[in-house]
C-alpha cells in the first residue's frame, strides 16, 4: 500500500538533471502527489517556460516510482501558480551554497530599471566583494558572478518571483 508520504520520500531520490545536488522536492517543482494505494499522480511545474530539464524530470519521476513498486505513474504539468525561487527549501539553499552555487538573494522588483546589481555573497569565501559578470549563466535559472577577493567565478541562482 503506497501512501502520499512514501511518494514524497521517494521523490527526494530524484535529482534535478542540471543541478544534481538538488532534489526535485528541494527545488519546489512538485506541486501535488496523489495515490490510490497502487498508482500515483504527480503534478509538477516548470521553473522557466523553456526549461529543457522538465521532460527529463518527468521521465525520472516515472522511472523512480516504477522502481519503488508503483503500478502506473502519471505526471502532469501545471503553469499556475508560477514557480518562484521562494519555493526552494532552506535545505536546498544550503545544498546549493555547499555545491558552489550562490542561492537566490532577496532582490528588488526587476521592473525598476537602473537598479544596482544585487550583492551576492561568494559561496566559496563568503565575501560580499563580488561582481556580476552576466545576467545569464549556464542555465536559464542562473546568472554569472565572480568574487573580487578569492577570484572564484560562480553561478548565482537568480531570484525569480
Amino acid at each position: 500500500m503506497v501512501t502520499a508520504s512514501d511518494l514524497w520520500l521517494w521523490l527526494e531520490e530524484v535529482s534535478d538533471p542540471e543541478i544534481p545536488v538538488l532534489t526535485v522536492v528541494d527545488l519546489g517543482v512538485i506541486r501535488s502527489v496523489e495515490t490510490d494505494g497502487k498508482n500515483a499522480h504527480i503534478v509538477i511545474t516548470p521553473t522557466y517556460s523553456g526549461c529543457p530539464a522538465m521532460k527529463m524530470i518527468e521521465d525520472q519521476i516515472i522511472e523512480k516510482l516504477k522502481e519503488k513498486g508503483v503500478d502506473t505513474c502519471t505526471v502532469d504539468l501545471t503553469l499556475a501558480p508560477a514557480w518562484t525561487t521562494d519555493w526552494i527549501s532552506e535545505e536546498g539553499k544550503n545544498k546549493l551554497r555547499e555545491y558552489g552555487i550562490a542561492p537566490p538573494e532577496n532582490e528588488p522588483d526587476k521592473t525598476v530599471l537602473f537598479a544596482k546589481p544585487t550583492v551576492v555573497p561568494c559561496p566559496q569565501c563568503r565575501s560580499l566583494n563580488t561582481r556580476m559578470i552576466s545576467l545569464f549563466g549556464s542555465t536559464a535559472c542562473k546568472a554569472h558572478y565572480q568574487c573580487n577577493d578569492c577570484l572564484e567565478p560562480y553561478d548565482y541562482f537568480k531570484c525569480l518571483r
Binding site: 516548470p46 522557466y48 517556460s49 501545471t78 503553469l79 499556475a80 501558480p81 508560477a82 514557480w83 518562484t84 536559464a140 525569480l160 518571483r161
Partner: peptide, 10 residues
Amino acid sequence: AAIAEKSLKE
C-alpha cells in the same frame, strides 16, 4: 493568465 504570470517573470 497562467502563461502571462509565468512569462512576465522571464
